[in-house]
Nucleic acid binder design. Structure first.
Lengths: 127, 127, 127, 127
DNA sequence: GTGGTCTAGACCACT
DNA sequence: GTGGTCTAGACCACC
């Protein structure tokens, strides 16, 4: 199955996001080898050129390096990796704040709400 | 365009979510008339039965009431409306916490990060 | 509309029951004139012969008397009328007891449950 | 014969009632497997979608649970089951009281009448 | 095989 | 005009 190409983003950007998340989560660790362009293309049922573009862009972004004839690897630079993680976190935060603002909940209230939530979850309480 | 039916949820649930958000945001205020089933069906390019199902479910959920031969309306009960808003907020929070946990950031850190973010935003600073 | 001929009973019996209920409720009072066979046939969209049979049977049962050339009337005999009322009540009770028995509730418990219900209803309480 | 679709209720509600009664009576015991949607549709000579709707509603009500690809089952939760039984009993009582009220018999008299009836039945007497 | 969703088009009841 | 129900037949996902 085409591993879900729905969300109205260019496919190559979706591929990038996919790898960004995998790397940020540590599923693809520092220095790990990415699947080949061809493999990824088959797995995602996408044209190899599209995957190629995504890989190039990831290299430009900096968290992937390509060694000719060998393949693509997650960077070894821990600064880049934590930077990636921070960027994703930042995006997540902004999305969250935007959503809550749409419901009329100000950023100033969020810290308290989260603390409250964390407390409830931590104690396994339901109410 | 069929107003975006991507995200892998049944269409009727997407329709419900759409209205839930509109109501929670106040775009559809207390007592406001919803577009007719047929109108919504045309606007979203979807079968009227699908919309019908969504409308019935919304009535069951409680934030929409229906008057035979007249149409469907957002409930007048403010308790239900704030309940709806709270539920959406709760869902948003949980999604956020899950995302952050996937990046290795614990719930306990989030409050501080948000406070930090709010502070920076308040000063118009950018990282 | 054919005033509902569904319940898998011969139509003439359904017509009888209809009148029995109307009389027992007092909607058709002692001595009141019934609509003519023809009127009832039209109103219920039924063959006049069917209505005729029902009227004859009601006369046989005793709560309706027919005066040739004038029409049919609810009996004047109060004993018959209370008898009719009692019979319908009896049927209602038996149906009720049968239903409850099917749910495993014995007749001996019913009095208490009803008292309980009447008490709650009388006080307008919800619980 | 289409297993009697007379009483002016939507078919899917009649299907629900049918199963509610069967469960409340214990004919379908705790954890028992319901016939598949298609089987029920054939047996009742009704469109499978109509049955599907009934099954989904029963799951929503809570006395049926559904396992994708396997079938639908009566809930294992005894609380839900007794709740169902109580609800049906309650409805039966209300119907009964309404009928009797239409005959001019007050709720306050019913307990005595029932006690009387139970007593007579217990002695094998007939009025 | 199971349940779940969607469409198309019909008919009804209420206003 | 409105919502409510039903049918027919299709396709999907899970097991």
């Amino acid at each position: 199955m085409p591993h879900q190409f729905n969300e109205n983003l260019p496919i190559y950007l979706q591929i990038i996001r996919r790898f960004e998340v995998a790397v940020a989560r540590g599923e693809l660790a520092q220095g790990a080898k990415l699947p080949s362009v061809r493999e990824t293309a088959i797995e995602m049922q996408v044209n190899p050129n599209t995957v190629q573009r995504a890989y190039q862009e990831m290299e430009r972004i900096g968290f992937v390096t390509t060694k000719r004839g060998q393949g693509s690897y997650v960077t070894d630079d821990p600064v880049v990796l934590t930077g990636l993680r921070d960027r994703l976190a930042q995006e997540s935060i902004e999305r969250f704040i935007t959503e809550m603002a749409a419901l009329g909940i100000h950023a100033s209230e969020l810290a308290a709400m989260l603390a409250n939530y964390a407390h409830r979850a931590g104690n396994g309480q339901s109410e």
